[in-house]
Design a protein around this nucleic acid. Structure first.
Lengths: 208, 208
DNA sequence: GCGAAACATGAATACTGATTCATGTTTCAT
DNA sequence: ATGAAACATGAATCAGTATTCATGTTTCGC
């Protein structure tokens, strides 16, 4: 009943070959990081294992010491993005008690994160097609947090009534669309401006 | 200086082999429709030409009479989706003068369309990775219409001030997120409920 | 410092699936 | 009615690339 590898027990997808030495650890990190860049730049299908390993500075066979398949490295990147984004947002949000202010801060933190990690952003979007389960997990974890926050805020009378699920999806949709502007369309509007306009819409709607 | 094939001159992507007989027309339609189903269901990469032609009831080689490459059929499907969606929304919106009401009607029409055409919806999303140019075109055409509508409404004092570009992206993000709930996550919330909640958020924001 | 486990190599394998092509069949303007 | 263009066929080609494997090299607990 123990847990030798020290993995999170909740994770279904246990990496099949955790490195056991410092060297292995470093190599796996190098491959993951190379995969992030190569897949982020060329997309999953056009990214080859050869490109990834060459970018990582290791031989092609080395890849399969750490990942069972090409899809597995992708899936790990999606998980990583999930962890990082949730951490970033909860960090940026923690000290703020006002819900609408927290909403604004979370949006700003999210957009800054995706601007700093465009490759990860693209990978999560592509997960929809490459690894739907990973995508669902990423998206659900996110939505759950959002929804419960909104529910509390409604209970506290901080915001108006409204189905928290639908609202959570809508707010995530706004964040995603603005992230796409930055990462995919190369939009240069400063993040604070995007946040200001979007947050005004979120807080007050379009009514004159 | 004439335009023999009668194509729209503005279209960059002229189909290289327009069918010239009724039979050809029917065959091309069959292949397009089969491609929509097969690619929509399995994704671009897992969909093979063989599956598409077999679903269409024609031989494999026939595919290449009408499409130069696998990517070309995909690209045509994205264009088709763009035409259909814009038509559907403008149809649903035309008679409504009140901007916020038009917004609601457009959202409802969009969601009903994607519910009726889940394969096309998925294909447009995947275009982001398979054919970025087609995706950009789809998205831009959409955003342009949105933006100019919002600008007018601001000028008429129908809605509050706010950057029309950012607002257009945000509103499109909401629509996309709700469409994803329906098509990708199989969410059963009735469309009118989704529309009601989302439209209330759009019109009034979250403020209590 | 030893040796077993871990790690690394890169050439060989194995397979998939897009595209081509040589050969028929059908359509339709004349 | 006819023949040239259009359409259809499906087996063969051909390239790319994920994965395996037999063979070294390095690490690290003892």
């Amino acid at each position: 009943m123990n847990n030798p590898a020290g993995n999170a027990v909740m994770s279904q997808r246990t990496p099949f070959n955790q490195p056991k030495t410092a060297r292995g650890e470093a190599t796996k990190k190098a491959i993951l990081s190379a995969a992030e860049r190569v897949i982020g730049a060329r997309g999953y299908n056009d990214a080859s294992i050869g490109q990834i390993t060459s970018e990582a500075g290791v031989a092609q066979g080395t890849f399969y010491i750490y990942f069972k398949t090409k899809e597995e490295v992708f899936s790990e990147l999606v998980l990583e993005m999930g962890r990082l984004v949730r951490h970033t947002i909860s960090e940026a949000t923690q000290t703020i008690s006002n819900r609408l202010e927290a909403e604004r801060a979370g949006l700003a933190a999210f957009l800054e994160f995706v601007q700093a990690h465009p490759d990860l952003y693209r990978i999560v979007q592509e997960a929809q097609f490459v690894d739907p389960d990973a995508y669902r997990e990423y998206y659900s974890a996110f939505a759950d947090g959002y929804r419960s926050g909104l529910s509390e805020a409604v209970a506290d009378g901080e915001i108006s009534e409204g189905d928290p699920d639908t609202r959570a999806w809508a707010l995530m949709g706004i964040a995603r669309a603005l992230g796409e502007q930055i990462v995919v369309f190369g939009n240069k509007t400063p993040i604070p401006d995007l946040v200001a306009t979007a947050h005004d819409l979120i807080a007050n709607g379009l009514k004159p």
